[in-house]
Design a protein around this nucleic acid. Structure first.
Lengths: 165, 165
DNA sequence: TGTCGATAGTTCACATGTAGTATATCTCCC
DNA sequence: GGGAGATATACTACATGTGAACTATCGACA
């Protein structure tokens, strides 16, 4: 980007409203946090209309993406979350009839989780509203900006890549 | 299950995984979510070393930034969170001796929250490690990239700006 | 002055995320 | 084949978010 000092100026103007940040790094991190909070807030409300929590939707979405039964651990890894939390989460999804659990025959420690037809239908009904909300939240950014944003976030995540989870 | 259909679907999903998802908008949103999850995970561990949860640290940080007592509601607003959650949060901070609550004399509905000296000392001790982690997480991005990232996230948040909270 | 709507906090019920620990199984090595 | 350590889940305790409903107080208006 050639006009780096231009955006820097605009940035400082915005910052004046409160106290300046300690560093650009802190500012970026807080921006990520705040943006995420606001966006997840919105998605949470949408999911609730379908009687799902954000985590529950996330599990169903992952299972559909995989297209076949998955062990708990693998789901937990994709959610960047601790395994113990999966138990209660899956308990409720099972009680709601959205998933089935089946113990693996080769390795009896493993339990496979599978989507039910009910869940697939529900996901299909949610696709349009979810996609709409995605566009509503960041649709005012240009294609170039969206690509830049994703690229910057991907680069940011490199710092935690080879660490222990 | 019809194996041929299933594997074809999986293939398409795998292709999508490496490239844009359903849309650039969705990709950007998921990048925000994933980056935030990983980063907050790290900060959470750091805070825990000082016997604070992320939310607790956030409250203390906001109070220090303001520099004077604040009503619960205002703290909650800055945290983009629902007021009811503040009660228990403040209860624990008070029990730990980090804050004091005082009822406002003019408007007896309002309760002001104030930092104790203990909390100020704690925050001071945490400043260096926190700043270090900020740099560790996004320090590999250039100054220009950090500025770009913040600017893009600020622009992204415009979509929820004039909405109801 | 007295009631009504608005506002600040609280309380409650429930789902979640985290750490720590327990249990069942598997794998490997003797 | 039997036991040690590794692995996959489950269970428990606690802090947190969320919505709904409640209490105390304030402000305005009849």
């Amino acid at each position: 980007m050639k006009e780096s000092h231009v955006s820097k100026k605009r940035l400082q103007d915005e910052l004046k409203k409160k106290r300046p940040f300690d560093s650009l790094e802190q500012e970026a991190n807080l921006n990520i946090l705040r943006t995420n909070d606001q966006f997840q807030n919105r998605f949470g409300r949408l999911f609730r209309e379908f009687d799902l929590t954000p985590s529950q939707y996330n599990v169903l979405r992952i299972l559909r993406g995989e297209g076949k039964p998955m062990p708990c651990q693998e789901i937990a890894e994709r959610m960047i979350q601790v395994v113990p939390a999966m138990t209660g989460l899956l308990d409720r999804l099972e009680a709601q009839g959205h998933i089935r659990r089946e113990r693996c025959t080769e390795d009896r420690r493993v339990i496979y989780v599978e989507l039910t037809e009910t869940a697939k239908d529900l996901l299909k009904r949610m696709d349009a509203p979810v996609s709409e909300l995605h566009k509503k939240l960041v649709g005012h950014l240009t294609q170039t900006e969206l690509t830049q944003l994703s690229r910057l976030l991907e680069k940011a995540r490199l710092s935690v890549q080879e660490k222990d989870k």
